[in-house]
Design a protein around this nucleic acid. Structure first.
Lengths: 225, 225
DNA sequence: TTATAAACTTAGTCCCGTCTAATTTCGCTC
DNA sequence: GAGCGAAATTAGACGGGACTAAGTTTATAA
């Protein structure tokens, strides 16, 4: 058996190595988990002893073939819960993350399978992240392009938004920006501001480049490339 | 904040003092929690320091006015989950206990309120136990009579069955005994066996007196009293 | 009223997951 | 290739929750 904390570490490693497909450094993991570095070192040793990660001192960790499915299972739970909470229990987009983050460790796979079935085995969660299937296949990464990569005049379809910042999510939904929304890039500035025009509206929505880079989108038309 | 373990202790104390309305002894609690006595002593001291229980060494514990609502909240979560799992997620009567026992500590009150609403604020769980309301009112204890208190020839309506023995629950449901079922007592023996005839059927269902005493029932007709 | 068994508590240990402080290693620059 | 700052690890401690072994207290019975 695996503690909820250990599952959280594995999930974090999965996300962090996913971005780079490289070894995850102790410091990165510490920051992501909100703990100090020595805590990470000691946990990582435990995970290595149980063969969930490859650990090389001073070099970082990577998930093993044993660790990956554990992380994917948790991610499946999380994303199914987010979907279920919004779709069946009237939770708001912005509220689901914390509840899902706790429950993901405590629901059985049976529970996950049942809610998946009720929802018709959805492919993505409310933020556009792909939901691993019951046998832990996960959709290929989306386009990889973000709102920050676009040029003025491009029209793009929003693919996914980060799920862990309630304020941002509230802001986005208030301005009609959700996965599948189509937006046009109306302005980018040298000082890091991206301005959008959601679909047919006249409204202008401005986002810091930092945020724009965390929102992935699929190019539909325009001058990019 | 309160750990899941502490919540479990408070819940256990609630159940145990409920049966006797007296101080709960260390040994009783130890057996119920599946731990050794010293573990109970040390936990009980922590709970007392935080004012969830009154603790008098060598005398036992009672919940305080601070402790009671905590226990009731957990019980509300548990029973709502049992109901939700059977009614909305196709869980079997016999399967729900363990899942509910884990999740009860991790769902928010918001989650509980939402599933209560979805279910139409049910008064009882699938085993017939009353579900505390959102403001933690709990229905008065039922008749208090059990199947073991009946006389041959009595007809009774099953009120509640214990929720924590899957084998027993499977056996009961296979033989058509669930809360609200009407049964007739057809035989009681000096060596502790009670035989029932569920409703109009001809089937005989035998139960050890020990088990009969754990099933409460409301007398409809007959010679008892 | 005292002896004794059962119940309870205290003492001390262990593992988990965290921390701070101190040390070691890495990797880069000169 | 020597020195230096950043990153990582080791050392040691702590609170949570459990355990075993060793004392106390209580209650019961003679």
């Amino acid at each position: 058996m695996l503690s909820a904390i250990m599952e959280d570490y594995l999930k974090a490693i999965y996300y962090l190595q996913g971005e780079t497909d490289e070894r995850v450094r102790t410091s990165t993991l510490a920051e992501h988990m909100g703990v100090e570095q020595p805590s990470v070192t000691s946990m990582v040793k435990k995970l290595a002893k149980r063969d969930f990660v490859h650990y090389e001192p001073y070099k970082g960790v990577v998930l093993t073939d044993t660790g990956i499915p554990v992380a994917l299972e948790i991610i499946r739970h999380h994303r199914l819960l987010e979907r279920y909470l919004t779709e069946r229990l009237e939770y708001d987009w912005a509220e689901v993350h914390d509840e899902a983050d706790r429950l993901e460790h405590h629901i059985s796979n049976q529970f996950a399978d049942r809610i998946a079935e009720q929802l018709g085995n959805p492919a993505v969660d409310p933020h556009g992240d792909p939901i691993p299937t019951a046998d832990l296949d996960v959709s290929p990464p989306q386009s990889g392009e973000t709102l920050a990569d676009q040029q003025v005049g491009d029209k793009v379809r929003i693919e996914r938004v980060p799920d862990n910042d309630p304020d941002l999510l509230r802001y986005l939904s208030e301005h009609g920006i959700t996965p599948t929304t189509v937006v046009e890039i109306v302005e980018t500035t040298s000082f890091g501001m991206v301005t959008l025009d959601p679909d047919g509206t006249d409204e202008r929505v401005a986002l810091p480049e930092e945020v724009a880079r965390s929102i992935t989108a699929q190019t539909l038309t325009g001058a990019s490339n």
